[in-house]
Design a protein around this nucleic acid. Structure first.
Length: 575
RNA sequence: GCGGCUGUAGUAUAGUCUGGUUAGUACUUGGGCCUUCCAAGCCUACAGCCCGGGUUCAAAUCCCGGCAGCCGCACCA
């Protein structure tokens, strides 16, 4: 039954202007969609609700970085080298295979991550042939999942369309850290397009080549992954499917946040809190709890740098359980890597609660000998001595009788040049790479899930039961019949609502029943109808989409009541 | 990327096998009539053979290629 639902949902979505496939008059291109007029509002409403959660609620800040990125940045993140699939083609039957998979199958050997040349070598050395026809396999080449482009008029600088928004947050980390006044934890979000040149995207809006992400990067002290509001959510229930359950094919656990933490199912408070937040968000978007679960990545599928990773999955009928949000503890992988490549120090100074005093042996230059011997090089050599552990210098004296320091040339430090001393040093803290907790939302998949799960079919009407705060059109205004006197009153009400910032639609065509049906179909939560009595008593009816109930309210209060209903300050039953 | 199936107004379809009048129907949509609350009725209008090439006097129809969709395989750090 649910499987048919997809087709009905997509039909209505297409017919009424939510989602269209792109470039349709040129036959279209797989992996791209247009957000049609209502879809664009719906998507924006969902993104703005997301902002309310993460920017307003969690006190994170949003940034916006370019979608085109220079090669160096993606080299550092590992995407240039690893965001590829090594492919090989059979010279006879032209079939294409993942080179590493062919080898693994033939030799039962893990070759993931090896260079293409190495893979080619293994194939020829072991005489691995096409699994289907036994033909010779071609040289291994990389299919790159990133869209490449050239930056600048001369086109010399290689650029790529970003494969995720996250990198745009890691790169200006130093400035962000200063913006947050050097204190952990802090969170930065980015909403925007990301690009992946999928080999063969075929699941509509589920797998796109250009898609929208909403990501938060939460930088935390690795020693402190607590969350200040954890106690408030400790009792909340979550549906968790940990790796262990998957391997033993067990059912998911219904478990409280506190329990999940106590049993070490989820690795930190901060991570669980993010799971909870995702659940609350999706719930408010109208996705029922029973269609929602958290699936932990199996050790084999987890990216090599992640400590713990959970996918939020939605039940879809047609595509089964689909990942719509990934919540990962990326540890310090990204910052460390950008630090290495850029030579910038992307660490944070963490001050100890109490300064520590440590006894340290140092090699102090004996200046009366040191200066005359090394002359101009002396200052640099002193600097080098300061950074070297005294015991390695002593060891070198024991072994060779001197300690070499390499600058422009090699200088030999002799025992007479230094004195060793025990000093007491006060250490106030240390520099560390923060860990990153990352909730990453696939907005397009969420839009699809929302449409799918809000779709209702009743007798002779179908409609999207969209939550008030995301419905693209908030209120419809109708004259009961299309007569000048009623119409002008209705148009007046519509104009007034528009002036107050509401998306209000006026419709006078066909019968009133048809107009209600049209309005329901696109999920408009409320309809205002002007009838003949309205002309006398200045009252109109307001109708609730979900149960067709109607209440009479004064025209003068329409704007106020719609406003309160849409913001959920009152419910329809309160009228 | 491979194999199978498919492609006719906004939607659902007839016609394709067996080439031949103006490509038919229903719903939807626009305009109008009627109408005092849930897709009623009547009149009227708009709108279609996925794209390119070939065969033929003549192609929605046959052939080839492309594109897109569905299913299976593969892919989805």
């Amino acid at each position: 039954m649910k499987i048919m639902k997809h087709d009905n949902v997509m039909n209505v979505a297409k017919k009424r202007g939510f989602l269209w496939s792109s470039f349709e008059i040129y036959s279209g291109v797989a992996g791209f969609v247009d957000y049609a007029p209502l879809g664009a509002i719906l998507k924006n409403n969902i993104m703005n609700k997301w902002r309310k959660y993460y920017v307003v609620g969690e006190e994170f800040y949003e940034i916006e970085s370019p979608t085109v990125m220079p090669e160096e940045a993606l080299k550092a993140s590992g995407h240039v080298d690893h965001f590829t699939d090594p492919l090989t083609e059979c010279k006879d039957c032209m079939d294409v295979y993942r080179a590493d998979h062919v080898i693994e199958e033939a030799l039962d050997k893990d070759v993931e991550g090896l260079e293409n040349d190495k893979l080619t070598e293994i194939i020829s050395e072991n005489k691995i042939r096409c699994p289907r026809c036994g033909g010779h396999l071609n040289k291994v080449w990389s299919y790159h999942l990133m869209f490449q482009t050239l930056i600048g008029a001369k086109g010399k600088k290689i650029g790529y369309m970003r494969p995720e928004t996250a990198q745009g947050i890691f790169i200006p980390f130093k400035r962000l850290l200063r913006f947050f006044r050097n204190k952990l934890p802090f969170g930065v979000v980015q909403l925007g397009k990301a690009y992946r040149n999928e080999i063969s995207p075929r699941q509509g809006v589920i797998r796109l080549r250009e898609f929208t992400q909403a990501e938060a990067e939460i930088f935390v002290n690795p020693e402190d992954k607590t969350h200040p509001h954890f106690s408030q959510i400790a009792a909340e229930k979550l549906t968790l499917l940990p790796a262990s359950c998957q391997m033993e094919s067990k059912d998911p656990l219904e478990i409280s946040a506190q329990e999940a933490l106590d049993k070490k199912i989820v690795s930190s408070e901060m991570l669980i809190y993010q799971l909870y937040l995702a659940q609350k968000f999706l719930r408010e978007l109208g996705i029922p709890d029973e269609a929602l679960r958290f699936r932990q990545h199996l050790p084999t599928e987890m990216a090599h740098y992640a400590i713990d990773c959970w996918d939020v999955e939605v039940q879809t009928g047609r595509y089964g359980w689909v990942e719509i949000i990934g919540i990962a503890d990326r540890a310090d992988y990204d910052l460390k890597s950008h630090s290495e490549y850029s030579k910038e120090d992307l660490r944070v100074f963490i001050e100890y609660d109490e300064p520590k005093t440590v006894n340290k042996k140092i090699a102090k230059p004996n200046m009366s000998k040191f200066g005359p011997t090394f002359k101009g090089a002396a200052p640099q050599l002193m600097e080098a001595l300061k950074e070297t552990d005294a015991s390695t210098i002593q060891d070198s004296f024991q072994e060779k009788g001197y300690y070499p320091i390499e600058l422009d040339s090699v200088y030999e430090i002799l025992p007479e040049h230094v004195e060793f001393a025990e000093v007491e040093e006060v250490v106030r803290g240390e520099k560390i790479f923060p860990h990153v907790i990352e909730p990453s939302y696939g907005i397009d998949r969420i839009v699809y899930s929302v449409l799918l799960h809000s779709f209702h079919e009743e007798k002779d009407k179908t409609y999207f039961k969209l939550a008030n705060d995301i419905a693209p059109v908030q209120v419809s205004v109708f004259p009961l019949i299309n007569k000048e006197k009623l119409a002008s009153v209705a148009i007046g009400i519509k104009e007034n609502l528009r002036k107050n910032g509401f998306i209000a639609d006026y419709d006078s065509s066909g019968t009133i029943g048809r107009r209600y049906a049209r309005s329901d179909e696109i999920g408009v939560p409320y309809a205002i109808t002007v009838d003949h009595e309205s002309l006398e008593d200045q009252q109109v009816t307001i109708r609730n989409r979900d149960n067709s109930e109607q209440v009479r309210i004064p025209i003068s209060k329409v704007e106020n009541i719609i406003s309160k209903l849409i913001s959920s300050k009152i419910s329809f039953e309160d009228l």
